[in-house]
Amino acid sequence: MLHINRENLKSSHQLIWFTIDFLMLGLLIINLALIIWDSIYGFIAIQNLLQEQVPAFRALYHPIHENFIFYDMVFVSIFLSEFFLRWGYAIKAGIYDRWYFYPFIHWYDLIGCIPVGSLRFLRILRVISIIYRLHQYKIIDITRSRIYRFVNFYYEAFMEELSDRIVLKVLSGVQQEVQRGSPLFDRIQQDILYPRREMLADWISSRVAEAASEGYIPNRGALRSYLEDRVDTALQQNLELSRLKFLPVVGPTIQETLEEAVGDIVANVIHEILEDLASATNHAFIEDIVNVFLPTPDQVEADDSQNEALINLILEIIDAIKEQVRVKYWREDMP
């Protein structure tokens, strides 16, 4: 059941138009109910049944059925009057850039007014447009209604099933292309990545420098202490170095000196590497790495074993993606 937000309705500057919307909504529901009933009444079997069971009702309604077009035109005249009233307001308020845009934008309000049997049911579009407009202005909240939750649940289920089948079809096609030895990967490497090697090197260089400066420099002291502790532990477990302590007089001193020297050397080497990575001087190093991974096209040598391993890896990744796509999340919401 829809709940009307009376506070938003009262505070709105379009109270008159919303009142008209509710009035039109009621008339549309009544009109559609009459159209459905008249369509059912059109069957001879229904007329005979009513003649047998409730002859008074049939005698009362049969003249309406024979002149239903007249009664329907009464509703149509009301709907058209409301349409032209809104059109005039749109022109006065300058809602659209041209005065004649309104009937094209609100075509669904016009097409349902055609008094032809099959087109009459298109008035449901006008019901939907009014409900959507009221929901958009937060006068009503259709998401709280049972009908909306019911329809939305099966809509989401249908869309998930449809999208899953499309994705699985696309991924299966990609697998077939990979198995046939599609030149896609060569094109990506030679036509896309290789011409942009310098840009990739600049980007990777800046990212590495940023990561090193933000991650290492603030924690330089803690990292140095950690490295020295690790080196001391490794040296203490070394058998050859442990034998130095058995030398008379100078043995323990030599052992301690070596441990401190090795720890200091390792810490300084790591410090210099990370300092270089955190500065702009890392560009040449990063560029060399990029050149190794993206050689010039004439330097690329085909390696069947490596290509086969790469293809198998890609196929396994796609299989994993397909397994994940097959998961039906909409079933988790079922009671």
Rank of each mutant, 00 (worst) to 15 (best):
N5P: 13
R149M: 05
Y132E: 07
Q324S: 08
D333W: 08
L315S: 10
V325W: 04
H13V: 01
F153K: 03
Q189E: 04
A209R: 13
R331E: 12
A309R: 15
W203R: 06
E332R: 07
E198R: 09
I192K: 05
R207T: 10
F83P: 01
I111H: 09
I142C: 00
L32G: 06
N268Q: 09
W37G: 03
H62V: 00
I16Y: 12
L241K: 08
I95T: 15
C113Y: 00
S225L: 08
D191P: 03
M1E: 00
S39R: 06
E82V: 15
Y226K: 09
L25A: 05
V262Q: 05
E66K: 07
I192V: 15
I46P: 00
L184H: 05
Q14W: 10
H106N: 15
Y194E: 11
M24Q: 15
G215Y: 00
E260A: 10
I192Q: 03
K10A: 12
V54Q: 11
I44V: 06
D191Q: 13
V174E: 02
L241D: 03
N67H: 14
A280G: 12
L274A: 14
L9N: 10
V116T: 11
E287P: 00
N291E: 11
F83L: 00
H135I: 06
L277K: 14
N291W: 01
A234N: 02
A33T: 13
L294P: 03
I188D: 06
N307A: 04
D276I: 15
Q175D: 09
G88E: 07
V170P: 03
P248W: 03
L15A: 12
Y100C: 09
G26S: 12
P252S: 02
K169C: 06
N268M: 12
F153R: 10
K328E: 09
A234C: 01
V74C: 10
D333F: 14
L9Y: 04
I30M: 11
F104I: 15
S206I: 03
L134Y: 05
I46W: 01
S172H: 03
E275H: 14
D202N: 02
I111M: 09
A201V: 03
L184T: 14
G215I: 08
L241N: 15
G251N: 02
E308I: 06
R326N: 13
E198D: 14
I36W: 09
F101L: 01
L9F: 06
I114Y: 04
M73I: 13
Y329E: 04
L274Y: 05
I217A: 11
H135M: 01
I142R: 01
M1K: 01
L50A: 07
A222N: 02
